[in-house]
Amino acid sequence: MQKLGMGQAVNQALREEMHRDPNVFIAGEGVGVSIHLNPMFPTHGLLEEFGPSRIKDTPVSEAAIAGLAVGAAEAGLRPVVEIMFNPFFTLASDMIVNHAAKLRYLSGGKSAFPLVVRMKSGAGIGAGCQHSHNLEAWVAHCPGLKVVMPATAADAKGLLKSAIRDDNPVIFIEHMGLYFAPMPVPEEEYLTPMGQAEIKRPGTDVTVVTWSGMLGVAMAAAEKLAQEGVQVEIVDLRTLVPLDKETILASVAKTGRLVVLHEATRTGGFGGEIAAVVMEEGFRHLKAPLRRVTGPDIPVPASPPQERFYIPNDEQLIMAIKEII
């Protein structure tokens, strides 16, 4: 099997879908000519392959980039636009929140908006809070938007291909920390359906629900706990919307214990939604109170010791698990 960073896997998905469907085009800041010459980045080499009519470098104008996607999608094109970093989503948010998400509803189901908005997220790059801010809970809160946050290169590729073929707006969030670690990706063509979580590690004693960059932290903690005889089951959500409640509830039914792990800040984080779903629909399975392990309620600080403090780690997860087993 080939080994790719997540950026390369995204790149393959983009290439394959652009070859398959002439209506797919890409727009964003530096998606064609980039300051990076790095093949690990998602849009590397696309301009050379598909030319400037399908790979559109834009001005620094997030509202126009998102609006471009909305308008073009209504006309039947399949835009895949890029917002460089998750915090800059705020500039595009009217187009996404009030328009991409709502216009189909407002049309009484007559129109469709098949578009994908890709953005990079994640702390750990030392750039501080205006570049690192995980806002997935904001978008998940908007009916009409699908939200994808892959944790592996293989999932990123399969999910992005599904997202591009989907007739709805999809917010596709890539954790920058996953761009550079090669991971196995199948050679043959495949699609990964949105709305299906995956058990990334089976276990019997406690369920950890997580997504995106935190999968690695969950895996590391599970490895350590296994040495102590604690078997952790890891549910990688992969998509927040639609949410695969069944897989979560089935896992909790098996283990009786739940910890939700996410990098985003705690208050109003998507972990609260998982907790509520399990309380409402799986309370009878719980043998102990559930726990959340999340970033603290602060902007991501630039200083390295403080940025490390911000990012949830395996020790914190192990402590939370030990509190409830």
Binding site: L91, Q130, P301, A302
Partner: peptide, 25 residues
């Protein structure tokens, strides 16, 4: 800024430079 800003967002209100934003525009 006690290390919270780093190079990108230095706020120096004491010299009336209260905001450095790296959000373009």
């Amino acid at each position: 800024n006690k290390g919270k800003s780093g190079t990108l967002h230095m706020a120096v209100p004491e010299i009336n430079a209260p905001c450095t934003s790296t959000v373009v525009g």
